[in-house]
Amino acid sequence: MSGFFNIFIIPGGLLLIFMLLSLIRLILGPTVPDRIVALDTINTLVVAGMILVGAAYEEVIYIDVAIVYALLSYIGTLYVAKYLEGGSNK
């Protein structure tokens, strides 16, 4: 490991804590859209954290996974939003 390992892994760990904070909203959330917002936030934080972990271990494969995760989670968010909207009015 180079001297940069700690610089990148500590913010990664902090992002993990923020994911847990958002998880509280995912569990509490009174309505369904609240839960989707929390899930969307967790997805963004996962992508940012994966990029940091990839830089810490100097492995490019983590960042490739982050790209695919970002696009797939976006499609998942759109899918749930479309389902929630309902198809009756169009």
């Binding site: 989707i36 969307d40 963004t44 940012a48 960042i63 939003a81 309902g86 009015n89």
Partner: peptide, 25 residues
């Protein structure tokens, strides 16, 4: 990865807001 994130994030937020308003929240 950054370009994907910048394009997808506001669009997802818009989809959630629209779905929330149409579902009656």
């Amino acid at each position: 990865a950054l370009v994907c994130l910048i394009i997808t994030n506001p669009t997802g937020a818009h989809a959630i807001a629209r779905a929330a308003h149409r579902s009656g929240v």
